[in-house]
Write a protein that binds this DNA or RNA. Structure first.
Lengths: 340, 340
DNA sequence: GGTAGTGGGACATAATATGTCTATGATGGA
DNA sequence: TCCATCATAGACATATTATGTCCCACTACC
């Protein structure tokens, strides 16, 4: 006996396509509201007229309203959208994908968000929300949360709300400066996270490449020492995973190191560590803070990364990731990895 | 959280229509296969071209095959159809209808078959199958099955297969001749049932209206007596229910009796008994065999009747039917009765 | 006051759905 | 063996709907 969904897939594939189209429209409006027809059409890859027909329909169903500033969801539309999320997951078989990927990567749990972050910024934002949501279940009385940088982590920060701050939270950067733009630095992200949750945070300014001498003296600094202690007693680590070359470029890595990375076929990056496809560390940014071996001692590890282009990187990193890791990713990655 | 279907209905209002259309097509092909497009279109009330589009679609889905003798379901199509039956029942709320009707009529169980026997002969055939199916659960080592006449019972006979004959079955007419055409006489039906199940049967030829004298002498006949014993020890009774006037006409009832029936507002008929809307017996065909009061002693009673036109008759008969009765009927009747 | 966004109207054209008819072949009964 | 019947597939004109592409008036914000 097949499920209703399976039956429908068989008997109404054409209608399900329409369902998906309408769902996408609702979802996008939900994000971008109030939004005009033209920009929405561009963002969805539909022509204006097609979108218009659909929008007219949805308006008739009282799912959205149209006024001179653009289209918005009605409360009915919002409710429907929420319920639809669940349905679409089933329809797309996302629940199944999650299990498959979890087994393939050999980690504790995989959460997949519909869509592809490479193609739509909305999805990256969803990724952030999904991560925040998962984190919610892990919060107890006091929580020290170690965070890395990157645009994905920035999305996570945006997904946090004051609601989370009802528990006591302290955000600390997981590692010293590893040379991202200020915008996506761990320090900045920690501060945003703290701000969004009305919690505390620590910063961790460490020059990028330090001589061994300075390194030794830094470690002895009481302030730094305290932060290192905090990091190692973190209950949760949130980190991103990046494509090796992309990350290296973004960090303005020296041409020599760049050569090295290419020669060693580095594909993935996380925490300032670079990995080849087999999951071996081929290079690391020397800085103080959490080291890869420290990660194993952290009870909760959440890796967040999406976009089909990151599939290889994720796969590489997960080769050696702690089995406790929870991966928050998107459909783009999942499809890429399970199709092999 | 709404049900999947409710959600979908919001975004695809014509979903159910399309689903139902495709389901009907599959179902009809299932019955009539191999069948041509034109006759199928006529039977479904669709134009040829519309049907053709749908059929092309279903063919692409590998649910049916087309060759020069007509269209047939593939095994995949058959499986899907079976699953669909169940889904459509839920969608139409047939399960709910069954319960409602059961309570309303105050009987043990109601089984409802989708459709209306008045409108489609397929449904009558389904009725027969449903009855046979229910009966299957009642068969034990040895079974004496008392049967009445009527076209519905003939459909039941057609629904029986040799599989049923694995248990020991003996079919006997429930009552003596009550004047139907040979075709739909209890005797004939018993013989067909026995034939289809590879079992035994008895016939029971009794003149229609006998004088008390002859009646007395018949009762003393050992052969007749044996059959009467069999009838009264039956483990299962299968009977139809008819519209009073229709049945009376079919039996070429005398004008006087006809008048009587009309005066007494007879609406229902079963076993040769005529009932008014209150369930009172207003007339009976005098013959030997099972009497209405004998019915109460039979452990399993299955009434089979469908078609919206029989709704009143069924309601009337059920007013006084044993609570043990199981009614096998169709959607046409059920809708008619529950809408009051 | 100008710019960039908005919705809605209009309309020619493309695409699809539909009704209807024909050609042709297979099948089964006389 | 032939003929009536039923089958599919092709064809095609027409009705209906979907689509792409404008334009216009309006408004919010700079």
């Amino acid at each position: 006996m097949q499920s209703i969904i399976d039956l429908q897939k068989r008997l109404l594939p054409d209608l399900l396509q329409v369902l998906h189209k309408r769902y996408s429209i609702l979802r996008s409006i939900g994000y971008m509201q109030p939004v005009g027809r033209r920009s929405l059409a561009a963002s969805l890859g539909l022509t204006e007229r097609v979108l218009r027909s659909e929008v007219d329909f949805l308006k008739d169903q009282n799912l959205l309203t149209i006024n001179n500033v653009g289209m918005s969801l009605t409360s009915e539309g919002k409710n429907l959208l929420e319920d639809l999320e669940c349905l679409m997951r089933k329809l797309k078989g996302i629940d199944v994908l999650e299990l498959e990927l979890k087994h393939q990567l050999g980690i504790k749990k995989v959460v997949i968000v519909p869509g592809d972050s490479d193609l739509s910024p909305m999805v990256k934002s969803d990724l952030g929300k999904a991560c925040a949501n998962w984190m919610k279940n892990l919060l107890s009385g006091e929580n020290i949360i170690a965070v890395t940088g990157g645009s994905t982590m920035a999305a996570v920060a945006e997904g946090l709300t004051p609601e989370y701050g009802q528990k006591e939270l302290l955000f600390v950067p997981a590692r010293g400066g590893i040379g991202e733009d200020v915008h996506n630095q761990a320090n900045t992200i920690c501060s945003i996270m703290a701000q969004n949750t009305l919690s505390k945070y620590r910063v961790f300014y460490v020059p990028d490449q330090v001589s061994t001498e300075i390194y030794e003296s830094l470690i002895k600094d009481p302030g730094i020492h305290e932060i290192l202690n905090l990091i190692n007693s973190a209950s949760i680590v949130l980190h991103g995973i990046g494509d090796a070359i992309t990350m290296a470029k973004r960090r303005k890595t020296s041409p020599e190191v760049m050569e090295l990375l290419k020669m060693d076929h580095a594909v993935g990056e996380a925490f300032g560590y670079y990995f080849n496809e087999a999951g071996d560390i081929v290079h690391k940014v020397t800085t103080i803070g959490m080291q890869l071996e420290d990660l194993k001692k952290i009870p909760n590890i959440i890796a967040v990364a999406g976009g089909a282009s990151k599939a290889k990187a994720i796969k590489a990193y997960m080769k050696q990731a702690p089995a406790e890791t929870v991966l928050i990713t998107d459909e783009g990655v999942a499809k890429q990895l399970t199709s092999y």
